[in-house]
Design a binder for these strands. Structure first.
Lengths: 181, 181
DNA sequence: CGAAGATCGTTGGATATCCTACGATCCATA
DNA sequence: TATGGATCGTAGGATATCCAACGATCTTCG
């Protein structure tokens, strides 16, 4: 989970079916001839934020799907790579997902041989998460997809706007986060 | 669905369950002392887009929750208000949700007396959706929450950046949407 | 007109996610 | 040192959402 609800969520093992189970296909503002009026929504930041995020999620899912891993796995692997030995709770906080949400995800990654869960020596309640060599490899593959995806986003955003856009997103995150609760 | 995907504010009297079932509490970038490193994620648009969207969703859910309606209901009511008589499929396309997702939502709104589902005269397969007077009232209440919410977002984004920010979001939506599949 | 295909809304199956509860473990304090 | 409270990861319960399949209806075309 690095991504939010759906932008980047992981998918899970869907060898059985290749549909992404959670990738909406929104085709909202395209206009086309769908002359549906959005009224108030038309000028609302929140609504557009949602649509942009979902579209980004779908696009990334499409890319990363080819590797058998889902968007959510990417953030998970990145954070473990960057913080070897961290706990599941800490990982959840970092990627924005509840620890209970990570349980099945980590179990899967472990079974695939991409991560290890060793009981922490100092605290036997928690696990020390690390990537296996295979995990590092999977991360590299996903990172390539992520880079290509962000390149697409950069292209749409425009090089000259990227910094300001990212900065604005960070302000929103920080500002709303603190209000949290 | 105007908003993302979760917000489910507690209702009063929710004997069965009182938890909000879908409002993450992410506290990711705040830093605090959570010295978790995000590595690649740190400079990725997609990741920040997800966090910003989720934070916005949670904030809106908190506001609208007091009215007993959830974020998703807002977009639903707005679009029906703006396009009286439209079908469930058209509504879904407008708000970015699958028609099957709307079935239970519309059933609920109908039972609460906020909308009407009349069989379309020209096509008996579909329903013609309209708001009841009570629905118009509920919409007005939600609109007030939405306005306050967007005011918060505007404040964080900054008046001078708002237009450019919204424009960028629209470019992302349009650009990624067309790539869709 | 009549059959094939498309579309509408519902149902069923699957995934992702949250929150609460719980046993195990750790820590602070009496 | 014992006890209570906090925290870790898991299990359960609930919601939101998607896609596929289905019956009903519409449309198109022979």
């Amino acid at each position: 989970m690095a991504q939010p609800s759906r932008a980047n969520p992981p998918r899970a093992t869907n060898q059985t079916k290749a549909r992404s189970s959670q990738a909406p296909a929104l085709r909202v503002l395209s206009g086309g001839q769908g002359r549906i009026r959005l009224g108030l929504l038309n000028d609302t930041l929140g609504f557009h934020l949602r649509l942009a995020q979902e579209a980004s999620f779908v696009a990334f899912a499409r890319r990363s799907g080819t590797s058998g891993l889902k968007p959510g796995h990417f953030a998970t692997l990145v954070v473990i790579h960057e913080n070897p030995g961290l706990s599941q709770t800490a990982l959840g906080a970092a990627v924005g997902r509840d620890k209970s949400t990570l349980t099945p995800r980590l179990t899967e990654l472990e079974q695939r041989g991409l991560i290890r869960r060793d009981r922490a020596a100092t605290d036997r309640r928690s696990y020390a998460l690390t990537l296996t060599p295979a995990g590092e490899g999977a991360l590299a593959a996903l990172a390539a997809h992520a880079a290509a995806h962000d390149a697409d986003l950069d292209r749409l955003v425009g090089a000259e706007n990227r910094a300001a856009f990212l900065d604005t997103l960070r302000r929103l995150i920080a500002g709303l986060e603190s209000d949290d609760r």
